[in-house]
Design a protein around this nucleic acid. Structure first.
Lengths: 313, 313
DNA sequence: TATCCTTACGGAATTCGTAAGCATG
DNA sequence: CATGCTTACGAATTCCGTAAGGATA
């Protein structure tokens, strides 16, 4: 048994049991992958994969268990490298933040600039994706930290800590009737075509459940990933927008008006997620703390230790 | 990085940083171990060990972390092999029970015979030692299950489940004055020289604390690891014995009398311990259940999953 | 001076990539 | 017939053990 064999198995699973694809991703030859996997199976005395003819078509029953354990082994070897990097040079290395457009555009710029000033030698990368993709990036080790508002807290292998809370607002053209309404209601809102976030993003579930609770069927004419797109179409008169309050800037969005809508859609919590069991670089803790000052290193480490525990704001 | 290097590091630590001893235990050459460790250090970009001249004298600060992670990696690779064995042949393999003399002699014989009848192809080994040694055997992977009454539940990396409860009894020669006493008290007992278990064994702590609570200083003239030795010296008139009740057999110990002493020393709990995170063979679960019927496989698996949780009788 | 780690070197074993073979959809 | 896994073989790399060197208690 060796680590190479384990890496091959993991990659084969990630590539949907396609050994050719796995070999390409690992920059090696396909026969090599094939042989190493077979040798591992021989050594363990069992088949990890179910083959039909010459193709891998499924994981065997014990294979599922094996793959799970292999994941843990390789995660821990990655932790070893991380420890090495940390003690080799404490303040240089790389940090990959997987996040949504909303965070990257509105809540992270200040954090990123502050971080770069403090840790100039760290290569900082922002990866964008929808929340399930972000979760996968962190789980696969392609990103160190995920920051998003939706669905990070449903993945058991992730530790998702609350970063900050925010509410939605409704944006309308300056002379829109809603801009003069006294106190906005969901019924008012449902009378107009609506432009808001894609279902996977930025508190969209809160919007949907709020309407559903009143048995309203809003006419969502357009959904987009980011507030800039939404505001553009609101400005064009296509409908009223529902965006995160932080995405409205009275100075820049002069032709629009924002109406606070926390009473309609509730409070959203943007979370910071890391892989449970991961060793984080010191500056990764620093980044998280810059983003959410209450998430200090000891707080995070304590949350990582007390596995099942929930931690709320 | 490869698994061999990790094994070398782990063994070096286990052998108190003596690479020669580590090489011997792993049936390889000492320069090989030396070189592989150096190469691992080079790859991680840090020193795992602190060297004075040419000797390893300590673990470096990051080295401690590295060794901890290495332990997890190697434990998981052992789990992989275990899965292989389980699916290769469900009912054959080996099972090592680390236990004390008392258990091996008085509580396990029935279990062992029943187990052997059900799983004739399993090589069953009983290892004896004092409780701290038993814990170490399980942690080092030299034993699968530890069974003992003392101190197994203080090791965080072990899951120690209650197996059964028992009390002490006092054994005296047939015509000893205590044999006629109405209801035994600690004060009565403290008047005679006492023979009982070694401090690390079989509920000895309960005995000590019981006397200490009454500020009595018993004269313990001899301590031994097992009840057979104790009973022998009681028979010779050296003193009165305190042993586990199950160790007294009225038919065989004809020249002695037993006096129930649960009201003096309280109830003891013999525990079954396995390494947290270990994959157990199916028959290992079966053994535990034969030993303590309430510890069924689902119960154990649930306890292994809910990490911090305590489970009591 | 005995113990113990490092360095040096030659041989053995393993690994790897290319090329060819063959099954599947 | 294109895709994808297996087998075969020669080359390259890695690994390992012996022998010698040097430091420490």
């Amino acid at each position: 048994m060796n680590l190479q064999q384990l890496r091959y198995v993991r990659e084969a699973v990630r590539q949907n049991l396609n050994l050719t694809a796995a070999a390409n991703r690992l920059f090696t030859s396909q026969p090599g992958v094939s042989r190493q996997i077979k040798e591992l199976e021989d050594e363990l005395g069992m088949k990890i994969f179910v083959r039909r003819g010459k193709r891998l078509v499924a994981l065997s029953e014990p294979g599922k268990l094996v793959v799970e354990i292999i994941g843990r082994v390789l995660d821990e070897t990655e932790n070893l490298r991380q420890v090495g990097r940390e003690y080799h040079d404490r303040d240089s290395g790389s940090l990959v933040i997987a996040t949504t457009h909303t965070q990257a555009r509105y809540s992270l710029p200040l954090v990123v600039t502050g971080f770069k000033r403090r840790y100039p030698k760290v290569r900082l990368t922002l990866q964008q994706g929808n929340p399930p993709q972000l979760a996968r990036m962190v789980l696969d080790g392609d990103a160190d930290i995920a920051i998003a508002t939706e669905s990070l807290d449903h993945v058991p292998q992730l530790l998702a800590l609350p970063g900050y809370s925010w509410t939605h607002c409704v944006v309308v053209p300056a002379r829109h009737p809603l801009a003069r309404a006294p106190r906005l209601t969901l019924e008012d809102l449902a009378r107009y075509p609506i432009i808001t976030y894609d279902p996977a993003f930025t508190g969209r579930t809160h919007i949907d459940t709020a309407f559903a609770a009143r048995e309203l069927k809003p006419d969502i004419v357009l959904s987009a990933i980011d507030a800039d797109v939404i505001k553009t179409y609101v400005d064009l008169g296509m409908g009223v927008g529902i965006v995160a309050a932080m995405a409205f800037d009275a100075r820049r969005d002069k032709r629009l008006r924002a109406i606070e809508a926390g009473h309609l859609f509730g409070t959203n919590t943007t979370r910071v997620a890391v892989r449970r069991g991961a060793v984080l670089r010191g500056y990764a803790y620093a980044f998280i703390e810059m983003f959410a000052p209450h998430l200090s290193r000891p707080v995070i480490e304590k949350a990582l230790a007390g596995e099942g525990e929930l931690y709320e704001l």
